[in-house]
């Protein structure tokens, strides 16, 4: 059904293109979605390591207050280009619950590379209570869990605008042009210049949003680079084999009269 969805969406996008001549925006699920070129899109795409590290910093300093990263362990950060010592140091900055100890109590200890990122809240109810009833979803799979995930998240993060006059936005809600229904509980997370990056990294809102989306694309599909590399080898082999097995078939069939 996604194929059909995309087919129809593609058709409507083509129609829109003919009518308006605008390529930048395509209709998404209820909101305005900005289409961007990502380092990781396409069969030859790779994650931009520097962007991943910046995105990780954005996650740590901005998102991690509310959003968990349940399926990512510190050891996975090796994919971002960190070495073992750096990973150990990052892990040790987090407190992880362990236990029970000999007295039967749970206790906190510094994280080790094998630990997963601790969730900011003990459970969903605690998360809801701290966020006015809204549940900040786990981000590990977010890019895969939304249609057109990377573009959608980027559009969401950069889509905070003043609400149109006609719209009455209640307290605790915010206007967002990308969000379905345009009203979202999460306040604008990235404003630009929120954090200081090593070197002279671009700290504009757009750049930081792109970095964190790149990071989340990696958390969704950490196997992506291996997958595409393996895929290119497999395709090369299979394409050659298409010709060879076709040749073999033709030779075997060459003595058959039509």
């Amino acid at each position: 059904m996604r194929k059909l969805n995309i087919l129809t969406r593609g058709l409507s996008a083509v129609a829109g293109l003919i009518l308006s001549g605008s390529v930048a925006f395509a209709a998404g699920a209820g909101g305005k979605i900005v289409e961007r070129d990502w380092s990781f899109s396409g069969p030859f795409g790779n994650f931009d390591k520097a962007s991943l590290q910046r995105g990780f910093q954005v996650y740590r300093e901005v998102c991690s207050g509310c959003h968990g990263l349940d399926f990512i362990a510190f050891r996975n950060l090796a994919d971002l280009g960190y070495n073992e010592a750096e990973i150990k140091a990052i892990a040790a900055e987090y407190e992880v619950e362990d236990g029970p100890n000999d007295e039967g109590e749970m206790f906190m200890r510094p994280g080790i590379p094998a630990d997963r990122f601790p969730n900011p809240f003990a459970n969903e109810n605690a998360a809801r209570a701290a966020n006015g009833g809204a549940y900040p979803p786990d981000l590990s799979l977010m890019v895969k869990a939304r249609p057109n995930g990377a573009n959608y998240l980027y559009s969401l993060l950069t889509g905070y605008e003043d609400a149109p006059e006609s719209m009455d936005v209640p307290d605790g809600m915010h206007y967002n042009s990308a969000y379905s229904g345009n009203m979202i509980a999460m306040g604008q997370p990235i404003w630009g210049d929120d954090i200081s990056l090593a070197g002279d990294g671009d700290t504009s809102m757009e750049a930081l949003a792109a970095d964190v989306v790149t990071f989340l694309a990696w958390t969704s599909e950490p196997e992506m680079e291996t997958r595409k590399r393996t895929g290119i080898a497999a395709m090369a082999f299979l394409l050659v084999m298409c010709f060879v097995s076709y040749g073999s078939m033709r030779y075997i069939w060459s003595d058959v009269k039509k």
Binding site: M1, R2, K3, I6, P137, L141, K144, A145, R146, P147, G149, S220
Partner: peptide, 9 residues
């Protein structure tokens, strides 16, 4: 491509 994003929730 043939799957549904919601199944990653």
């Amino acid at each position: 491509y043939l799957g549904h994003p919601d199944n990653y929730i």
